[in-house]
Simulated assay, not measured.
Amino acid sequence: MRIEDFSNTLIRNADGIYVASESRNVSYPTEGHMDCFQVEDRSFWFKHRNECIGAMISRHPFDGALFDIGGGNGYVSQMLAERGFDVALVEPGYAGALNAHKQRGLPQVISSTVEDANFAPQSIDAMGMFDVVEHIEGDRAFLEKMAPLLKTGGRLYLTVPCHGWLWSRADIDAGHFRRHTERSLQVLLEGLFEIDYLSYFFGPLVLPQVLFRAIPFRLGLGRKAVLSTEAEHGAKSGPVVGLLNKLLAREASKIRRGEQLRFGASCLLAAHRI
Rank of each mutant, 00 (worst) to 15 (best):
S7I: 11
S7H: 05
R12C: 15
I17D: 05
I17C: 05
Y18R: 02
E22L: 11
R24S: 13
S27K: 01
T30W: 07
G32S: 14
M34R: 15
M34W: 10
R49A: 09
E51F: 02
S58H: 06
F62K: 07
L66P: 00
D68Q: 02
G72Y: 10
V76Q: 10
E82H: 10
R83Q: 15
L89F: 14
G93F: 15
G96H: 12
G96S: 11
Q103G: 03
I110F: 10
T113H: 04
V114T: 07
P121K: 06
D125S: 07
G128K: 02
D131E: 13
H135I: 14
L143A: 05
M146D: 00
A147Y: 04
T152V: 08
L156V: 02
Y157M: 03
Y157K: 08
T159I: 01
P161F: 11
H163W: 15
S168P: 06
I172C: 04
D173K: 15
L192Y: 01
F202H: 11
G203F: 15
G203V: 06
L207C: 10
P208M: 11
L211F: 11
L219D: 10
A231K: 15
A231D: 10
V241K: 01
G242Q: 07
A265G: 07
S266G: 04
S266W: 08
R273K: 15
